[in-house]
Amino acid sequence: MSSDRAAPGVSWEELVADTPAMVRAALPMLRWRLDLLWQLRLPVQRLAVAQFDWLLDLPLWQRDGRRFQVTPRQVLAAPDRFGDHLRRVLAAELDFPIHAVAHHDRLVVLDGYHRLARATFEGRREIAAMVLSRADLDGICRSG
């Protein structure tokens, strides 16, 4: 497995503790389940890519087995330095919508940062998105 895709497994508590403050402030720090997220059947909307631009500055991606080391914007600005991430960005399927949710009065991406980066890289103005309600988000959260 690529060094830029895998990071050692940690507990939820360790993950939250390691999450940079800027990421914790920007995103809902809830333990939601990806499998349940992907099972949601919500209407697909076309949203402006520009409204998510600020998220590209969050250190969301890992490098050399360490989480929170690389921003999507760094990959777009210097793709030769981040080959594994660039390959994922370019392979991202834009026909598959991103998942977003309102948090602190603006939409944030839960799943789909490589798709967002590809849309940005290609200069697209819109991206397909499923927007979760707070009840949808609560419904995919793990208990305990």
Score class of each variant (00 low, 15 high):
37 L>I: 01
37 L>E: 01
37 L>D: 00
37 L>G: 01
37 L>M: 07
38 W>M: 01
38 W>Q: 08
39 Q>E: 06
39 Q>T: 00
39 Q>W: 00
39 Q>R: 15
39 Q>C: 03
39 Q>I: 00
39 Q>K: 14
40 L>N: 05
40 L>F: 09
40 L>E: 04
40 L>R: 10
40 L>H: 02
40 L>S: 05
41 R>N: 13
41 R>K: 14
41 R>A: 08
41 R>I: 03
41 R>V: 11
41 R>W: 03
42 L>D: 09
42 L>E: 05
42 L>Y: 01
42 L>C: 05
42 L>R: 10
43 P>K: 07
43 P>R: 13
43 P>H: 13
43 P>M: 09
43 P>L: 06
44 V>L: 07
44 V>E: 13
44 V>H: 07
44 V>G: 01
44 V>C: 03
45 Q>F: 13
45 Q>D: 09
45 Q>S: 11
45 Q>K: 11
46 R>P: 00
46 R>N: 05
47 L>V: 09
47 L>S: 07
47 L>Y: 06
48 A>K: 07
49 V>K: 13
49 V>G: 11
49 V>Y: 13
49 V>H: 08
50 A>I: 04
50 A>R: 12
51 Q>F: 05
51 Q>S: 14
51 Q>I: 15
52 F>T: 13
52 F>E: 13
52 F>C: 08
52 F>P: 11
53 D>C: 04
53 D>M: 05
53 D>N: 10
53 D>K: 10
53 D>A: 15
54 W>L: 08
54 W>N: 05
54 W>Q: 04
54 W>R: 08
55 L>N: 02
55 L>E: 15
55 L>C: 07
55 L>K: 02
55 L>W: 04
56 L>T: 00
56 L>S: 08
56 L>R: 06
56 L>D: 07
57 D>N: 13
57 D>F: 11
57 D>C: 02
57 D>Q: 12
58 L>S: 07
58 L>V: 04
58 L>P: 10
58 L>W: 01
58 L>K: 02
59 P>E: 14
59 P>W: 10
59 P>N: 07
60 L>Q: 07
60 L>Y: 02
60 L>S: 12
60 L>M: 13
60 L>H: 06
60 L>R: 04
60 L>T: 07
61 W>S: 08
61 W>F: 14
61 W>C: 05
61 W>G: 04
61 W>H: 12
61 W>T: 00
62 Q>W: 02
62 Q>P: 10
62 Q>E: 15
62 Q>K: 03
62 Q>T: 01
63 R>L: 11
63 R>M: 13
63 R>A: 09
63 R>T: 08
63 R>K: 15
63 R>G: 02
64 D>Q: 11
65 G>K: 09
65 G>W: 12
66 R>F: 15
66 R>N: 14
66 R>V: 14
66 R>M: 14
66 R>S: 12
67 R>Y: 08
67 R>C: 04
67 R>F: 05
67 R>H: 00
67 R>A: 14
67 R>N: 13
67 R>K: 05
67 R>S: 14
68 F>P: 00
68 F>N: 01
69 Q>S: 08
69 Q>E: 15
69 Q>G: 03
69 Q>T: 04
69 Q>I: 01
69 Q>W: 03
70 V>L: 11
70 V>K: 09
70 V>P: 03
70 V>G: 01
70 V>H: 11
70 V>M: 05
70 V>F: 04
